[in-house]
């Protein structure tokens, strides 16, 4: 059982943070991970920046552009993370677009992830069919959990398919949108969360897109085991830098988890 699977067995609401590697500064990747672990975040998505992030809204686009300008590349990230398992034990997921992985070489990429101690991958533009057509055995061979997305438009039948093909959690995108597009959840989202929760999937649900504060975190985790904050965390980093991490995480976690 890898760290993600172990974490999902814990009987608590899980808070996850997404941030773009190499942002705001190239060398911030590891200190941010350490700080998040210290503050009791449950798992982390490290964003591998891409020039053309078509599922992302302006906040993550901008952080990716700046990270690339700072000199972030796949090799630089692997170099930064090479001793990460001497420093933290928190589950780590790499999230990015498929092209940089393809250029590194899918097998070489997965091998490197295993060496470093990365637990899983989220590659939104590597959908189920393409994954199963060519890449599944490679991911599995290196013990990587691959996480698929579902959206309000995903049919029940496809959700079951995705659930079957998963080995960690199912990433429930909160609305039909790019990242960082909305503020707050309405009754439409709650109904959708409830509908999916009632499906009793094999794998736990983790909600992403649109979680920005304690209120949205609470709503999401009423129906799902965890929730992921991305754009709101990056906006905070942009404004306050690393000093803002502690108050930000505490503002989400008050009442809910302590």
């Amino acid at each position: 059982m890898n760290r993600i699977q172990k974490k999902l067995k814990e009987n608590k609401k899980l808070l996850s943070i997404y941030f773009t590697a190499g942002y705001p500064n190239l060398e911030d990747t590891v200190p941010i991970i350490q700080e998040l672990e210290k503050e009791g975040v449950d798992f982390i998505e490290i964003g591998l920046p891409f020039s053309d992030p078509l599922a992302d809204g302006p906040t993550i686009q901008e952080s990716s552009t700046r990270a690339l300008r700072n000199g972030m590349t796949t090799s630089v990230l692997f170099e930064q993370l090479k001793d990460i398992r001497k420093k933290v034990d928190i589950p780590l997921i790499l999230m990015g677009y498929f092209n940089p992985v393809l250029q590194y070489g899918v097998e070489a990429f997965c091998k490197k992830c295993q060496e470093i101690g990365i637990d899983g991958l989220i590659l939104p533009d590597l959908p189920l069919a393409e994954y199963q057509r060519e890449y599944r055995p490679i991911f599995e061979n290196y013990g990587l959990i691959n996480i698929f997305l579902i959206t309000p438009q995903t049919s029940d039948q496809r959700i079951r398919q995705i659930d079957q093909a998963s080995n960690g959690f199912v990433y429930m995108v909160s609305s039909a949108s790019t990242t960082g597009a909305q503020s707050g959840f309405g009754s439409i989202q709650e109904k959708y969360f409830e509908r999916i929760a009632k499906m009793q999937l094999i794998h736990p649900l983790v909600v992403g897109f649109g979680i920005s504060d304690q209120a949205t975190f609470e709503v999401a985790t009423k129906y799902a085991q965890g929730a992921i904050i991305g754009s709101a965390f990056i906006k905070m980093l942009d404004k306050e830098g690393k000093d803002g991490i502690v108050p930000f995480i505490r503002s989400i976690k008050t009442a809910s988890q302590k």
Binding site: L54, A55, F98, P124, D125, L126, P127, A129, E130, R133, F148, L149, I150, T151, Q153, T154, S155, R158, V173, A176, S177, T178
Partner: peptide, 20 residues
């Protein structure tokens, strides 16, 4: 039939676009 021309093509799209 699977949307490929030799080794090229396919549909590398995020799930949000899948239904469309």
């Amino acid at each position: 039939p699977s949307g490929y021309y030799g080794q090229y093509g396919g549909a590398f799209i995020p799930e949000m676009l899948y239904p469309n």
